[in-house]
């Protein structure tokens, strides 16, 4: 992890000179602004921050950040970022990806980065659609979704990105929404502090091909009754008047939503992102229905496990510690090891 130093950076320092080219009204703008104004908080010099992305509207992100950045190829950002992060522990490496990029073509790399616990902050912009290719359904689109490539409705069941990440042994899993800057930044903050992979799903509106996908979570009239704001150490209640809560029914496998008035206070689950057993965060990830009711946002899981980067570096250091002599001497020794013979 890079050492924080006292820098006086502002959001402006993180804006590159490139013209931002998303559709007017796209949720990506809000995320970009939130990230740019969050970055100074990291207190990491810009040259030590790298954004790596795949392909998609969302993946244009690095071009707009005045840090180091690579816009790579479809789905492969986690793999590329793994090589960078493992060899350069001094860097803060962020991956920006879309629902198609991360979960379809790049699904394999995502799960392996998470199980390895590479020190990457992975931001998945989930608009539940393929934006850049103009509106085909994605692996997070609802069953039956009508799109350009599914005129009769999609026959594919979607992934739940958080359930997937948890199944892949992710040590940090969170969710936030493009339109709620304060919340978004609070999740980024926790992700940045995490050593290892941090997986953050950001609900993002594609106003061209899937407009309003998350409206219930944003509309002042519905959002409080739909959203569960997870706070570490706090009982999980929600609704305009706290009228709903989350309980763990005895004998059941998961968590359920109840009316607060109908349960005794000690039955209400107190959120603990540090629960070692992933089943708890998994149960949280299963709460929302198809209608977006009971959608938890915040940090679901935040546990500690050695990162891939640390393990790789400590093996390297242990091996190097035993070395005597120059690398050239070492090499000469290695070349002439084994059965050799000399001709005079």
């Amino acid at each position: 992890m890079p050492e924080p130093v006292a820098l006086k950076l502002t959001a402006k320092d993180f804006k590159s000179d490139q013209e931002v080219r998303w559709c007017p009204g796209c949720g990506d703008y809000a995320i970009l602004a939130a990230v740019q104004s969050f970055m100074p908080e990291l207190n990491i010099p810009r040259e030590r921050i790298v954004f790596v992305s795949g392909i998609g509207c969302s993946s244009r992100f690095p071009y707009y950040m005045n840090t180091y950045g690579m816009h790579s190829i479809h789905g492969r950002a986690p793999a590329i970022a793994t090589g960078l992060s493992a060899t350069r522990p001094d860097l803060s490496v962020w991956v920006v990806t879309g629902d198609g990029d991360a979960l379809s073509i790049g699904g394999n790399h995502l799960i392996h980065a998470l199980r390895r616990n590479v020190n990457l902050k992975i931001l998945l912009f989930n608009n539940r659609i393929y934006g850049l290719t103009k509106g085909q359904y994605s692996p997070t689109s609802e069953l039956g979704k009508i799109t350009k490539s599914t005129p009769a409705g999609s026959a594919d069941s979607p992934f739940n990105p958080l359930s997937l990440a948890l199944g892949a042994e992710a040590t940090f899993v969170g969710r936030t929404i493009d339109s709620d800057r304060k919340h978004l930044q609070s999740v980024l903050r926790a992700a940045a502090e995490h050593n290892g992979s941090a997986f953050v799903e950001i609900y993002q509106n594609c106003n061209i091909f899937n407009d309003g996908a998350f409206d219930e979570l944003k509309d002042p009239g519905t959002r409080d009754d739909y959203l569960i704001r997870l706070e570490h150490g706090q009982p999980i209640t929600f609704g305009k008047d706290g009228q709903f809560c989350v309980v763990h029914p005895p004998g059941g496998f998961g968590l359920e939503v109840r009316e607060t008035a109908m349960v005794s206070p000690e039955e209400i689950v107190v959120h603990d992102a540090g629960v070692a057993e992933p089943a708890y965060a998994f149960a949280l990830s299963r709460l929302p229905g198809l209608d977006l009711r009971n959608t938890p946002i915040g940090v679901f899981r935040n546990v500690s496990r050695p990162s891939y980067d640390d393990l790789v570096q400590s093996q390297l250091e242990a091996a190097k510690a035993k070395v005597t002599g120059t690398p050239e001497d070492q090499l000469a020794g290695l070349l002439s090891s084994g059965d050799t013979w000399t001709i005079i």
């Binding site: 790596v52 793999a79 590329i80 793994t82 090589g83 960078l84 493992a86 060899t87 392996h112 390297l316």
Partner: peptide
């Protein structure tokens, strides 16, 4: 550093990421 990647695409991707670094 050697990395046994999840597939050949990841293997070259990681090598390229390391080269970038």
């Amino acid at each position: 550093t050697t990395m046994q990647a999840e597939d050949e695409i990841a293997a070259i991707g990681a090598a390229l990421g390391a080269a970038y670094g």
